[in-house]
Each structure stands twice: as structure tokens, then as C-alpha cells.
């Protein structure tokens, strides 16, 4: 079976790279995007199995990207894990999960085990 493809949309290059290395080691096929617009385009073309989406990114912010993806009938089934270094705030999390229909919301910095758990749970559900 082909390994699951994960799209990381994150503008902070060092973190994007570290995340990519970890996920590749975990056996995933990883693709990356540096901003919201690029992320949305790549998602449309490549149809990843899961998207890890940062909230504060250039061009189109993470909240908006999630809304775009979740309102597209071909893309809405791709699970989205939102992550944010912004305030540890319940309202942001609510916005991400409810208004923008993301499937998971993590506050930076998080443990890789926690991310991995979420990924596995969401892929199994799919």
C-alpha cells in the first residue's frame, strides 16, 4: 500500500523542515507549502491524505485556507490539523474547529507524539 501523503503548510522554514524530517521518518510521504495560497493550490492538485496547517501564514491565513478547503466538495474530506503559536486561547481554537471546520487544533510548541496520535486517529477515521 502507498504511504499516506501529508501536506505541511507552514512559513517558518526551520520548523517546516524539522516536521518534514520527523514525518518522513514516521513513514509518510511529505509535501510542503510556504504560504496559504500555495498551500491551497497544492492541495487542489495533489489531493493529500491529510493537511497540517499553520494559522499565521502569508497570503491567505490558516483560518481562511481551512474554510476554502472545507467548502470544496472534492477536498472537504481531507482532515486538517491546525496549529498555532498565537495565544493559547480557547476562542482561536473554537474558531479553528467550529467556524473553519478543522479536525484538530494544536498549540505550538507541541510534542511530536501528540501530533502523531492525531494524524493516526484522523487517517484511521478516513
Amino acid at each position: 500500500m502507498k504511504e499516506p501523503r501529508i501536506l505541511i503548510i507552514e512559513d517558518y522554514k526551520d520548523f517546516q523542515k524539522a516536521l518534514e524530517i520527523q514525518l518522513k521518518n514516521d513513514g509518510f510521504d511529505v509535501i510542503t507549502a510556504d504560504d496559504g495560497y500555495q498551500g491551497y493550490e497544492i492541495a487542489k492538485q495533489q489531493r493529500p491524505d491529510l493537511i497540517i496547517l499553520d494559522v499565521v501564514i502569508p497570503a491567505v491565513n490558516g483560518f481562511h485556507v481551512s474554510q476554502l478547503l472545507k467548502s470544496d466538495m472534492y477536498l472537504k474530506n481531507i482532515p486538517i490539523i491546525m496549529m498555532s503559536g498565537l495565544k493559547k486561547d480557547k476562542t482561536d481554537k473554537d474558531r479553528g474547529l467550529n467556524t473553519c471546520a478543522a479536525d484538530e487544533y494544536l498549540f505550538k510548541p507541541f510534542k511530536h507524539e501528540d501530533l502523531l496520535k492525531s494524524i493516526k486517529r484522523l487517517l484511521a477515521k478516513k
Partner: peptide
């Protein structure tokens, strides 16, 4: 600080 911190933590 959270972004660099995340990167270092992961590394």
C-alpha cells in the same frame, strides 16, 4: 518565540 522554539524542540 514559539516558532523557533518549536523548530528547536523538533530538532
Amino acid at each position: 518565540l514559539r516558532n523557533p522554539l518549536s523548530a528547536v524542540q523538533y530538532a
